[in-house]
Write a protein that binds this DNA or RNA. Structure first.
Lengths: 338, 338
DNA sequence: TTGAAAGCGCTAACAA
DNA sequence: TTGTTAGCGCTTTCAA
């Protein structure tokens, strides 16, 4: 195994000192063009590759930022990550991803691991399990930027990028009302997570704004998954049948649709709408109406926010909260005719 | 901004030396229990968090391995990553993901970035653009494990984990033949990428094994996407119409199905099968028959291979090639009755 | 414009 | 069982 070349090798070969080499390589201004060229050429010749670890150890900056998400298998988070990377790469920052798999324990581990890796900042979307958020405090204490997105928690005094989920719930409901549905049910998670609560509240508000009663047995609290969707739809259709169902996310909506098809109430006979615009939502039959959560924009805003925070001398000098507006994507599953 | 605690702070507080602290913290055996306990307690008290950078710089091991994939937005790669992480976490290794977005340039950058970050090894699946693979040589020269998976290249003398794609193409074709389809077409990429070539060859072999002619105009070479699928299906249905279409991947198959539905040749009237078992494939209408690529198993094998490589004194002492067998998932799109 | 030298936080060989 | 000390490869202050 051949020894890796360091700036010492370059220095020795050119009979200059490491400081000169370091300066030449890092674009320091006060360097003669000849020296710089000689160094760069020699670096290439010796096949030099900088050790970012050493640089980071000395300078205290790794140019790596950590992103904690529940799972990259959800299209929404994959998109966000993609856009965060995109928005950050011109500034030389790289992203490292940590998946919590919806477990607080993993999330705590993630924060620790990323901090030990000396990341320059962290962006996170909370796991469904997370209620206590004290494990994030260490980031703030180290004065490193922490940005929460989508699944946030008001207990932390940090910038957030969110969707207006109350409004998301509201417009989903209003859309169904506008389409002529009169008995609208809601299948969602029993967990006390802000964004899901907000959607439910938006639903209730929309109902009462339009003089519809909020019927308790029309709200099914369970989980969010295809299975939960099937279960929820089954339960709803057994008694006091609704004529439309809002599902907490697109996976759940898919389960609802499957169940409804099985019992010959194929949407839009019963209207169905979801949240998140997953990859499959446009392609199932009937295609699923859903609320678009603007993953791309959310990722972009995260990147922008991070850049803004490190440009301030104190990252938490002013804490901004960006709220994006959801929009509805109308497809067949709510397209009731007549 | 308060100063971070280091092992020096712990040493000072306990009136011992840093080496003792280091040993106590890293589970070195020859340490008295009292000292160890004192150190651990003090570490907790001072809220100590190790600087992995410094440790890595000194020890030469970061316990981070880099994974280069075309995109995490493809369900297949997201699953693989998940399983790689899973198989590696017990050994203390973390994964950092780099997306090539199907561009060689990004791939080259990825290798460089990961190497500069001093990863302990790299796993990669090649971009569609990649033909020259010399940028991977540096990894081998540094004697670090490199494992290629799924989209591999025989030019590199490294372990590989692949699917038997020839067989994948063969069984997809055979499945259609068994179902009674007689004029089977193939829509795939024009790029010379091994796995796609292999599938096509498997298709040809299956045809000739069953005494069907290989008809040139039944092979449409373009790209792989929903759009390409629509285009391919359109082109095929214009002249010398096939009665079944194999698509290079599930996205392309989705496009094919969309087009066929539009012209009232809804599958399985015309049979359609894809590759990859994407997230949506089970849920579209008709549900899509496809070839399962065993992402989970592939990820597991990658992790296993890496662990094996680092356990040898020279990672490339013996180079293994793991080939997984594809299996077919039969759904509605090929379920021709009578 | 360049050099000398200290040190980032940790590990590990050697000594005691 | 613990201490001493020399680095890992780089950046950066101070001096020349």
């Amino acid at each position: 195994m051949k020894k890796k070349t360091t700036i010492y090798d370059i220095a020795k070969a050119l009979n200059i000192t490491v400081s000169t080499v370091s300066r030449a390589l890092s674009g320091f201004p006060a360097i003669s063009d000849t020296t710089r060229k000689a160094v760069v050429d020699m670096a290439k010749k010796l096949n030099y590759s900088p050790n970012k670890l050493a640089s980071a150890l000395k300078s205290g900056k790794t140019y790596i930022i950590g992103v904690i998400v529940p799972s990259v298998q959800a299209h929404f988070f994959a998109s966000i990550i993609h856009c965060i990377e995109d928005g950050l790469k011109d500034s030389g920052y790289r992203v490292i991803i940590y998946q919590s798999n919806e477990s607080v324990e993993n999330e705590i581990n993630g924060v620790r691991t990323l901090l030990e890796a000396q990341v320059d900042g962290i962006m996170a979307s909370l796991s469904l399990e997370t209620t206590d958020v004290s494990h994030f405090n260490e980031i703030i204490e180290q004065n490193k930027p922490l940005i929460l997105f989508d699944r946030v928690n008001t207990g932390l005094k940090v910038p957030t990028i969110t969707l207006d989920d109350f409004n998301a719930g509201y417009i989903a409901t209003k859309h169904l009302i506008d389409k002529g549905f009169k008995k609208i049910a809601f299948v969602t998670t029993a967990r006390q997570v802000k964004i899901f609560n907000d959607r439910l509240e938006g639903y209730k508000k929309a109902l009462s704004d339009h003089n519809f009663p909020v019927i308790n047995e029309h709200i099914v609290l369970g989980g969010l998954s295809i299975k939960d969707g099937r279960f929820g739809a089954g339960k709803l259709m057994r008694a006091n049948k609704p004529d439309a169902i809002i599902a907490g996310d697109d996976f759940t909506a898919l389960g609802v649709i499957q169940k409804l098809k099985e019992i010959n109430e194929t949407p839009p006979e019963i209207g169905v709408i979801g949240f998140a615009n997953e990859a499959f939502s446009a392609y199932i039959t009937p295609s699923l109406s859903t609320i678009d959560q603007h993953a791309a924009q959310m990722g972009k805003e995260c990147a922008k926010m991070f850049l803004k925070m490190i440009s301030q001398q104190h990252p938490y000098d002013k804490i901004e909260h960006v709220v994006l507006n959801p929009s509805i994507i109308e497809r067949e599953s709510t397209d009731k005719r007549g």
